[in-house]
Design a protein around this nucleic acid. Structure first.
Lengths: 215, 215
DNA sequence: TTCATTCTGGAGTGATCGATACATTCTTCG
DNA sequence: CGAAGAATGTATCGATCACTCCAGAATGAA
């Protein structure tokens, strides 16, 4: 009874159809612009089906965010192992490049998420909170990889600053690409890698200085 | 008749009240979330007055963007002259710092603008177009100042890449600050300045290399 | 077949949306 | 004053909003 409960009717398929429709519409028009009538039309399912699968509009959008993020994470994890003879800089650049690809492969996720993040409606939407949590996870992941990469050279606070700057720049480059498709995203991320390493160099030298002063 | 046409009734004052209300609401809730009824309530003017001053909702938001941008530009132009003994890096950092201040002084402008920029509704809203034009202006201004700063060291294409990266990173840091007020915006922009200079260094060395190759 | 459960179809709720019509008040100028 | 235009107040339009009700089709278990 519970084991064979999987493929009952069109349940799961319909749910996905609704999420697909909601994701594409929300990516185009934002939270308020995503009307149930539109989602119903594009998914070719009546409004009652939408409300059978989801409690309300808020939770529908939250579900969209959650699914998009998991897909994005999968894309991130499917990374090729680093080349054996790679230099430090190449290793770093590869990481940045992977992030760039993951972003462009799932643009709806970040586009909708950033739109939600920028909104400041009094009644904090669940969808927004969901995105912020998910974003926090991504941030921690960057911090963790930076901690390994700059181990013993930059302190924890500096690493967090670098990670924040990297994530912010990635967001901004993504937006620039969304606004103008002619923007060379790959090249920009390449330059971003150099920029981050440049900032890291400054943090390194600052640390060296402060150590000398301690002596 | 035309000279004394200034303070006719409450005309101009009402127009500004409407723009104030629309700006704050649109900054909170985005384009679709900005309802005439809300603007009417917060400006304490009836809907008919709003439609007397503006053709429709689209043009109202466009007017909000335009006014915000002009205020932002004023804040940017009011810069103190550079210190006499400033080094190259200090000069550059001062410029970046000024940009940061201008952003935090007029947050509604960029917040609403980025929300509009991320939207992709089929019927391209006038307000969005207005922001993109205004943003193009800002971009050209950055390019112009970078051209002076990196004169003879980095070619035109490299300068444009740098400017794009700088603007994108500024957008991203702004968003990070909007999402989490604890983010140290000033410090982040300081680090951004170092990052940009680091990226510039890479572009410089690349140019040197290609020049050698030409020989 | 019978029964329970899952899911859909379609009509319909009151509230709110952007926008308008039009009378009325306010301000300035002759 | 009185005419003309600027601006507001009231009241309302049809469309669309998020959401609900409920009958019944589809499906799996017994």
């Amino acid at each position: 009874m519970s084991a064979a409960r999987r493929k009952r009717a069109h349940g799961e398929e319909s749910r996905q159809r609704i999420l697909d429709a909601a994701a594409s519409i929300a990516g185009e028009r934002g939270y308020e612009g995503t009307s149930i009538a539109l989602v119903s039309e594009r998914s070719r399912l009546p409004a009652s089906s939408i409300y059978w699968h989801f409690d309300d509009k808020d939770q529908l959008i939250a579900a969209v965010i959650e699914r998009s993020f998991h897909r994005w994470l999968e894309g991130m994890r499917a990374w090729s192992p680093p080349r054996p003879g790679a230099t430090r800089e190449e290793l770093f650049t590869t990481g940045v490049r992977r992030t760039a690809k993951a972003l462009t492969d799932a643009p709806d996720f970040l586009r909708l998420g950033l739109m939600l993040a920028l909104e400041r409606r009094p009644e904090e939407a669940t969808a927004r909170t969901m995105f912020l949590q998910v974003r926090e996870q991504a941030y921690k992941q960057i911090v963790a990889s930076y901690e390994v990469f700059f181990e013993g050279e930059i302190d924890a606070k500096g690493v967090r600053s670098l990670a924040l700057l990297a994530m912010a720049a990635a967001d901004g480059l993504f937006i620039a690409h969304e606004v103008d498709e002619d923007v060379d995203l790959a090249g920009s991320f390449e330059l971003l890698a150099a920029a981050i390493l440049g900032a890291a160099e400054k943090l390194r030298s600052r640390r060296r200085r402060s150590r000398k002063e301690k002596k």
